[in-house]
């Protein structure tokens, strides 16, 4: 016997703001808390680390006197809490500080690097989500076919290969062996930049598309096996209707969550890809920041990534609530 759920009466409670807005507000508060924690963690980690930043600025040959004056200049002798307060105060004014090694505001460095990373990020994300989703749908509807098996084979290999391994193999094939595409650097603008981005995009797309395909195939396959699909087919509804209104709509929450997760996970993958192809993007900025002990850069980049993650998760949550009436009504019922 399944549980009989009686009709729920929609009670009209006079809320000042809609439940959705309330939820968003709650999440925003939570996001601020998370970001606050992140700043503390970054700060703590950096100052717990051995080898001060003065060494990085002064260079290997710096005399103790020079190092001391650098410390003084950068307020590194102040108590930690004071340094932290200054850091947060500046942060609230939109000031991420000045890079030790690059001698420019951190925000400038990040903006420059983002010019390289963002196109890479967006192109990869769109491609892997769209192609992965499409392949997932295609294979879910033809489970067991030859095409399905081929795609599965590809996705197992693609999804479990480290991105740099894929990258190195691709640059050997397309760069060294065939000589079709450049394998190093960001290009000099225009078509050249596009050309330089093809291999990095391809590399990341292969990895992420594989995961997306696998996930989408399973999810779409689940929905396709549900009674509602059989019922829709028994009513003679077209495959287009079934795909659009039944399969895609009922997988919406999972697919949006996945797309968000992919975007978040890409932050790590991009660091590696930028290293493989020598792109001067955010990832490279972070890695050089780390090796040069350039604290403001590391702090700035980490914060930007954290902010991105928080925003993505918030957007994902809101979208899910918008498309699934069950979540929506549940929200109204509990609020």
């Amino acid at each position: 016997m399944s549980l009989d759920i009686t009709t729920t009466e929609t009670t009209d409670k006079p809320w000042l703001i809609s439940p959705l807005a309330r939820m968003i507000l709650q999440r925003l508060v939570a996001a601020v808390v998370v970001l606050f924690v992140v700043t503390i963690l970054i700060f703590a980690f950096i100052h717990a680390a051995p080898g001060g930043p003065e060494q990085a600025i002064g260079g290997r040959e710096a005399t103790p006197e020079l190092l001391e004056s650098i410390r003084e200049e950068n307020h590194l002798n102040d108590p930690l809490w004071q340094q932290y307060t200054t850091f947060v105060t500046n942060l609230l004014h939109g000031d991420l500080g000045t890079s030790y090694t690059r001698r420019e505001p951190v925000s400038t460095s990040i903006a420059t690097a983002a010019g390289v990373t963002l196109p890479l990020l967006l192109a990869t994300w769109v491609l892997s989500t769209v192609i992965g989703g499409a392949l997932g749908l295609y294979t879910a509807r033809r489970q067991g076919s030859r095409a399905d098996r081929a795609v599965i084979g590809f996705t197992v290999v693609g999804a479990s290969s480290p991105v740099f391994a894929t990258g190195v193999l691709l640059s050997y094939v397309f760069g060294v062996k065939l000589g079709w595409l450049p394998t190093l650097g960001s290009g000099d603008g225009g078509m050249d930049t596009v050309k330089h981005l093809i291999l990095p995009v391809l590399t990341t797309t292969i990895v992420l598309m594989a995961s997306t395909t696998r996930f989408a195939r399973v999810r779409f396959g689940q929905v396709l096996e549900e009674d509602q699909v059989t019922f829709a087919r028994s009513r003679g509804l077209s495959s287009r209707y079934i795909v659009k209104t039944v399969v895609l709509k009922n997988s919406g929450v999972q697919m949006i969550t996945l797309a968000g997760a992919v975007l978040v996970a890409m932050t790590g993958g991009l660091v590696v890809v930028e290293q493989v192809y020598g792109l001067q993007g955010i990832g490279t900025l972070l890695i050089t920041g780390i090796t040069m002990r350039d604290i403001p850069i590391v702090q700035g980049v980490t914060l930007v990534i954290a902010l991105m993650v928080v925003v993505i998760n918030l957007v994902v949550d809101v979208l899910c609530f918008v498309i699934d009436p069950r979540l929506r009504k549940g929200l109204e019922a509990t609020s």
């Binding site: 932050t267 590391v298 980490t302 990534i305 993650v309």
Partner: peptide, 15 residues
């Protein structure tokens, strides 16, 4: 919600 590889890079790198 935290990207593991990114955090690992930062922590292992910084420490």
């Amino acid at each position: 919600s935290i990207p593991s590889l990114t955090v690992a890079i930062v922590i292992v790198g910084v420490v």
